[in-house]
Computed example of a mutant assay.
Amino acid sequence: MRVLNIEDDTFKHNDICKALSGCGIKDVEWSNNLADGWKQIKNSIDSNNPYDLIITDMYYPDEPGGREEQSGDVLIDRVIKNKITIPVILCSSVNLKYPEIYGCVYYSRERNWEADMQKLVNSLVAG
Rank of each mutant, 00 (worst) to 15 (best):
G66P: 04
A115V: 06
L90T: 01
N43D: 13
L53Y: 06
D77L: 07
A35D: 04
D57I: 05
P61H: 11
R111K: 14
I41L: 11
L96G: 02
L75Q: 02
A35N: 00
Y59F: 15
A35E: 10
I101S: 05
K26M: 02
S31V: 00
G37M: 03
L53T: 02
S31G: 08
I80Q: 09
D46F: 11
V79C: 10
E68I: 11
S21Q: 10
R109H: 09
G65I: 03
Q40F: 10
S71R: 13
R67M: 12
I84N: 06
L96F: 08
D57A: 14
D73V: 07
S47P: 06
N48D: 15
T56C: 09
N112K: 10
D62I: 12
G37T: 04
V79L: 12
I45N: 03
P99D: 12
N82T: 02
E63L: 13
G22N: 05
V88T: 01
G66D: 07
Q70M: 14
N112P: 01
G66E: 07
V88Y: 03
G24L: 01
I89C: 04
P61M: 08
D52V: 08
T85W: 12
D77S: 14
D36A: 00
I55F: 13
I89M: 06
C91Q: 05
K83N: 15
I101K: 04
K81P: 00
D36P: 00
I54P: 03
A115G: 05
G65E: 07
Y51H: 05
L34Y: 10
G37C: 03
D52R: 13
I101Q: 03
S44A: 13
W30A: 05
S92L: 01
N82I: 01
K83T: 05
D36M: 00
D46V: 06
D77H: 14
S47A: 08
K26L: 03
D52Q: 13
N82V: 01
Y51C: 03
Y60L: 08
D116W: 02
E63V: 13
R111N: 07
G24V: 00
L34F: 12
Y59T: 15
I45F: 06
I54W: 06
D36K: 00
I54H: 03
A35C: 00
N48R: 11
E110H: 11
G37I: 05
N82Q: 11
M117L: 13
N95A: 13
R67N: 11
G65V: 04
N43L: 06
C23S: 13
N43S: 11
E63F: 15
M117F: 03
